[in-house]
Write a protein that binds this DNA or RNA. Structure first.
Length: 298
DNA sequence: GCTCAAATTCTGTTTACATC
DNA sequence: GATGTAAACAGAATTTGAGC
């Protein structure tokens, strides 16, 4: 039993003729006749009484008609709900972004994307790179923008596009002696400085510690702060020097509030990547977003 | 786990015939 | 003549199983 048979039943009931119903439904008359017969077999009851050349509903048919009509209306409603949902999904991109990109890259990106694609809505979810990856797997997020290091880049399980490389830079306040120094600080001086850094469990901190160990330097952490804005303000006030991503400090450096200290041996950084499932599985709006981002940065 | 071909099932059409 | 039913048939869709 299916919707087609119920529709045939309702049409025959309305027109009191299998031939006329077949004409309306674009079937041949035997096909509609077979549908009614199968419906009668399924219910175990005759639904029409043949009176001469006229078809009349039996008591069972009279009982079924309002139920069948309601089922068809519910089916039409469900079809509309699915169509609306699919249409809405085609116009929405759910973007997941890890902490650094969401603060320093994504706002401008979304704004420029929506200027060029006004019909597409972008919703934003934030989390760690691992959380965003998990959300891509579960389908909660369509596409992610993540910071990746040399160590983590090979572990990606999705399609990945490298967008830009963000090197870590040494940054001091404008009144710090290094800010006006003619020569870059030596390794020894770097090892003697006090630092304001993110906590030990962060990627940036692990990078910095590894770099210090590689060069046999002692890392003196004066302040450990999770918030990069707080780190920058502490450095502006002369509480120490920090090492953060170039993108993170770009605005303050441009404004003259912080100074980027040339430091040749510091050769570490991270790559900002766009990650998503196989392109064949992406809705058109998500494909548009990925193409836009890779064109901007690729 | 994927691909592909064969078998099976489903759905509809055509045709012949019965009933009114 | 108009309409409905039954049988034979065709094509599409689905299922199944072998091979890789």
């Amino acid at each position: 039993m299916d919707v087609i048979k119920l529709k045939a039943f309702c049409t025959v009931a309305a027109l009191r003729s299998i031939s006329k119903a077949a004409e309306v439904l674009y079937y041949t008359q035997p096909a509609v006749s077979a549908q009614i017969r199968e419906l009668e077999n399924a219910y175990g009851a005759r639904l029409f009484r043949r009176v001469g050349q006229q078809l009349d509903l039996t008591v069972a048919g009279e009982a079924l008609l309002p139920q069948a009509t309601q089922l068809l209306e519910t089916f039409e409603l469900s079809r509309q709900v699915v169509a609306d949902t699919v249409e809405q999904a085609q116009k929405t991109v759910t973007l997941g972004a890890s902490t650094m990109p969401v603060t320093h890259l994504v706002p401008e990106l979304i704004a420029s994307f929506q200027r060029s694609h006004p019909g597409i809505t972008v919703s934003l979810v934030t989390g760690s790179a691992a959380q965003i990856e998990h959300m891509i797997i579960t389908g909660d997020v369509d596409v992610g923008i993540l910071g990746r290091t040399g160590a983590t880049r090979g572990k990606v399980r999705f399609i990945q596009h490298d967008l830009l490389y963000d090197p870590l830079v040494v940054v001091a306040g404008s009144s710090h002696p290094w800010a006006e120094a003619e020569k870059p600080p030596s390794l020894k001086e770097i090892g003697q400085e006090r630092y304001v850094l993110p906590p030990a469990n962060t990627l940036t901190r692990r990078f910095v510690e590894k770099w210090f160990r590689r060069h046999g330097l002692h890392l003196d952490v004066a302040y450990e702060l999770i918030n990069t804005e707080a780190i920058k303000r502490m450095v502006m006030q002369g509480h120490g020097v920090t090492i953060l991503g170039n993108l993170v400090v770009a605005q303050e450096v441009e404004a003259g509030w912080l100074r980027k200290i040339p430091c040749e041996p510091l050769d570490i950084g991270r790559t900002i990547c766009l990650v998503h499932q196989q392109e064949s599985e992406l809705p058109s709006a998500v494909c548009d977003f990925c193409n836009f981002v890779t064109e901007q940065y690729g």
